[in-house]
Design a protein around this nucleic acid. Structure first.
Lengths: 231, 231
DNA sequence: GCGATATGAATGAAGG
DNA sequence: CCTTCATTCATATCGC
């Protein structure tokens, strides 16, 4: 995983230079922020902090849930025909994508390039097989359903003449109860943090940051390790 | 909500206080940060940013596509007992047919004519919409479930008198050890976001801000689609 | 309040 | 591709 951090780093590099200039100009070893900038900073930090906590909690909860119920069809996969009693006892007959598999699938799907060819499906299957039991049929079905249902969702309210991204998003947002809203916003905030605030000059003050290390090893860093986020 | 980030907050607050001191000392309208402080801030924000993105991605994957239809927005549904101050302005999370709607649906169902088909569903939806909030998907689901469950009832009821293994298994399946409370947490979303932290002391410095959210609706949309957070 | 149940919704898979 | 079914998930409701 590497996100889009390439551009970000470049931009940050640039900021760092301005930064140093600033420092030289002022001839002090400190940096000055306006109240406004400080406000922005505070808000950002608090936002991240809280969002992180909520996400972490959610993740923890979901993981726990998965451990208990979502054992999908791990190793104990045996054919129903084994059952001499005529009924399958414990075998789960339906494939359930693991989170990792799902993510990969989603990525491929969102990557555009509509219908994956036969060959493509084979490749995908091979890749996904590394993360759990899966077959080509599963992959095929998944794309089939994904497409169909995505499409059907779209046509639910084609009332407006033109579908601007705003309309689309608004529509989808409406269909999604409030529980995910903050996620969208947070992700957006993350994404545009450096870009959106350029005008405010906040990011200039932020300067270049290249460390992924965390301010507080106890909270954040442990948080990461605790949930295996980097794995 | 307090998780493990208590320390984090305290530390932040401490930093804040130092900033303010700086301001006073310097007697200027800006705040001065030392390099160390700036570094800390940078690290912290980047850490949050990184973690948030990863968590968001994971959550997207795990929770998968969980939306549909919609139409349960609209009327803020107040519980009678909430009375004066409905801090729980919860709109219904799932459609519930009104008695009238149910009656009509049952009639149509008993009327034979199996699958209502797309067109039929549209008509039914229109009719039912006169008696309450409803969408085509709701109707579709209702028939789908009605048929399926009626069918399943049929295999059990007529030959009742003993407990079939299936029946047992079906009932056993009901017991879900884990309830996803995270939904409740997340449902509070950004709205309550800042109020949850009221006791953290940090919000004193932050104020009751409600920004840190959407800076650019347009970008937000793109991101939402990119991450597929809304399905 | 809790646990069990009823039921709306999501989704893998099959059929055409 | 589209529709349908079967299964499962999640939540609203109800009885204790």
């Amino acid at each position: 995983m590497e996100w889009q951090s390439q551009e970000m780093q470049e931009q940050q590099q640039q900021q760092e230079e301005e930064y140093l200039q600033f420092q030289i100009q002022n001839g002090i070893c400190g940096k000055v922020m306006t109240d406004e900038q400080m406000e922005e900073l505070k808000k950002q930090i608090v936002a991240y902090q809280d969002i992180t906590k909520q996400l972490a909690e959610m993740h923890k909860t979901m993981s726990a849930h998965q451990d208990l119920t979502g054992t999908w069809l791990g190793n104990p996969y045996y054919e129903p025909m084994l059952g001499s009693f005529g009924h399958k006892i414990t075998a789960r007959q339906r494939w359930t994508p693991t989170p990792l598999q799902l993510q990969i699938l989603e990525n491929i799907y969102n990557q555009g390039n509509g219908t994956p060819s036969k060959q493509k499906i084979k490749e995908i299957t091979v890749e996904l097989a590394q993360h759990g039991q899966i077959s080509e049929t599963n992959v095929y079905n998944w794309f089939q359903n994904r497409r169909a249902r995505s499409k059907r969702k779209m046509q639910v309210s084609p009332s407006e003449a033109e579908v601007s991204p705003q309309d689309l998003a608004a529509k989808e947002r409406r269909s999604k109860p409030e529980n995910m809203e903050f996620l969208d916003n947070s992700a957006q905030g993350v994404e545009n943090f450096y870009y959106q605030n350029s005008d405010a000059g906040l990011d200039q003050l932020m300067g270049k940051v290249e460390c992924s290390r965390v301010y507080d090893p106890y909270s954040s860093n442990n948080l990461v390790e605790q949930y295996g986020l980097l794995g």
